[in-house]
Design a protein around this nucleic acid. Structure first.
Lengths: 355, 355
DNA sequence: CCAAAAGCGGAAAACGTTTACATAAGAACC
DNA sequence: GGTTCTTATGTAAACGTTTTCCGCTTTTGG
């Protein structure tokens, strides 16, 4: 198991001079009781103006700041919330986090960010903080494997405060916020069809990913609406990474009747694919159109600039945090919020045969 | 100040059925004292085998997990460390974080990630967790404005456990880890000079950034070593973002004697610059070479692939965490670790006049 | 001017652990 | 067979808050 810190030796904290100044020190210095100090800080209107000012002056002079651990223990809430992420570097997720932080701040929470790297052990370690009361709630931002953690938490503790963001909407047994993957994929497919493409390949993510599944569903739905038969050969499997996008794109050239467009289920894969296709001598979009999903910041600066679907990542995080706060305040209704996406047409898509 | 959670109403946590099972419940169920339960869990060799097993069985049966808040309060350490980041989305920083997490896990710490967004208020809020004993230490990953926070913490509490990573090496009043920005910049400049470039423009970051300053220093040093005079007109100011890189690059064309190479002090700016230069009709690298710094994952997939300096981000984080742990265990020596960088020549640099 | 209410502040009981100290029972020693 | 050393456990005191009772003033209303 976890190695003991500092080379296995059990070292006692020296903690020299400067002991922490406690509420007791303040109370003595101010000549009032501990309770009064506590009230002066936390319930200002429960003490007289004179006392309050006297206490606050001493607080300032002594540089006192309340021990939050003790406060947590007593008041049974830590004002800490955990955000579980599979990958911090994912731009959609980091946008989401930013939204969470903003709202959290206003509500007086601090956020504990856990990068799980899709590792169950790490995940469990963070969840343990929840049941150990070191955190009040969890926002689950798992991009793939959604639902696993939620279930894990909820099965062991049905009262746990969990909110799911960036996840598919149906499976969540808890409040959640997300986008309409199906609709967005339809919009993109419609865009490509509208340009005149008939053979549109798709690059999916892992099969377990609900995003992958929903976007695929939207693609097929729109294809059908246009009266075009779905062709299984046009489905390429990726991993939501640039590397996998690059590798998978090579398969495009092996297809007998080469598709004129490629719809990648995220931007990273699209970028990888474009690199490979360009390297193989195809021009984008003249020889083949490529579209992405997410609109990560880089996509606008790619060469050529990527046509994609924008997701309101930051807002998603903000809503998630609000839902969690409501949950923490006793709200029991399980709300589901869906935010709108936006098709952003840039330079990687064009009518077929523009050469 | 911070709005009270849940629309200002002070709602009491309902916390219905299923009260948390405490150590007392376990002790009763196991027929031993609280102390024994505590020991069975924390100091297994202080109790007899029989009792230990009996206790652990009950722990399992009751699903008990120790309240970490109480433990923190008593033992004066939270096993939580805070990582302060100016921007989660920065690939170098997120790599660093990954390294931190890996080491932290092995040492039994959880990491609390704070995205400060360069906002002093947010920064202060996280630092408050430190002085409020809700966290044991801080790793400061500030990419720009380095040193500010360190000083802030240390001035109010000289004993605070702070480690600085990704920062310049000289200014830190605390243990730190980083790379040799000067040497790396020299290496890149040498590479460009070696290709035959005489007029090499640089795109810097903000003046306050120590990285910016050090890389500039390395550039000038190597220039002088090659007997080339430094030309102030070739210095373009950026903001370490793609947007600023794109905007600043336009100035290149306004220079009378156009430089044949552009050394950007990070990859994002290089990518922005390339987009702009290409858009303006210049070919990279035939008409102008462009180099970056950092080697973010995208750089290898850019079109053309970016020549840059690789930084061992993950290792940097790992070392930082180790330093912090040592500090937490009483080590007082202020160590400074410098990790090696690596020049990665790809497609955006070539001899001048290759056209 | 008196009863009731309101305002203010103190004492002390939690919150759930860890751990120093005490106790008791064997084991080991001469 | 007493003394001393271990070993195993229990008792109770922290850790630093918040908050529930109270009691003491002061105001208010009649």
């Amino acid at each position: 198991m976890a190695r003991t810190a500092c080379s296995g030796a059990l070292v006692q904290q020296p903690d020299p001079l400067r002991a922490m100044v406690s509420i007791r020190d303040v109370s003595i210095a101010a000549g009032v009781s501990i309770a009064t100090v506590s009230r002066a800080i936390g319930n200002p209107d429960r003490v007289s103006k004179a006392t309050r000012e006297k206490v606050l002056r001493v607080v300032d002079a002594l540089g006192y700041s309340p021990n939050l651990v003790a406060r947590s223990l007593r008041s049974q809430q830590s004002k800490l919330i955990i955000v579980l992420v599979t990958n911090i570097a994912n731009p959609v997720l980091s946008g989401c986090i930013r939204g969470i932080e903003k709202v959290a701040q206003g509500l007086g929470y601090s956020v504990l960010l856990g990068d799980t790297q899709n590792d169950d052990t790490i995940e469990a370690r963070y969840l343990n903080l929840l049941s150990a009361r070191q955190a009040d709630g969890v926002i689950q931002l798992s991009y793939r494997q959604h639902g696993k953690v939620d279930e894990l938490i909820l099965s062991s503790n049905p009262d746990a405060a969990v909110v799911n963001a960036c996840a598919c909407l149906d499976a969540a047994p808890c409040p959640s916020v997300g986008v309409d993957d199906v609709g967005a994929a339809r919009a993109m497919t419609e865009h490509l069809l509208g340009l005149g493409h008939k053979r549109i390949a798709v690059m999916t993510g892992p099969d377990e990913s609900p995003h992958s599944r929903d976007r695929m569903f939207g693609y097929r739905l729109q294809l059908r609406a246009a009266g075009i038969a779905f062709d299984d050969a046009l489905v390429i499997r990726g991993e939501f990474t640039m590397k996998s996008g690059s590798e998978a794109a090579a398969k495009i050239l092996e297809l007998k009747d080469r598709p004129t467009a490629l719809f990648c289920f995220n931007d990273e894969m699209a970028i990888g694919a474009i690199q490979k296709l360009t390297g193989l001598g195809l021009r984008v979009p003249q020889d083949i159109s490529v579209a992405g999903f997410d609109d990560i910041p880089f996509s606008a600066y790619a060469n050529p600039a990527l046509t994609t679907i924008y997701q309101p990542a930051e807002e998603m995080g903000a809503v998630a945090m609000k839902l969690l706060d409501q949950r923490l305040c006793g709200e029991t209704e399980i709300k589901t919020v869906t935010l709108p996406t936006e098709l952003r047409v840039r330079q990687t898509t064009a009518p077929p045969g523009t050469a």
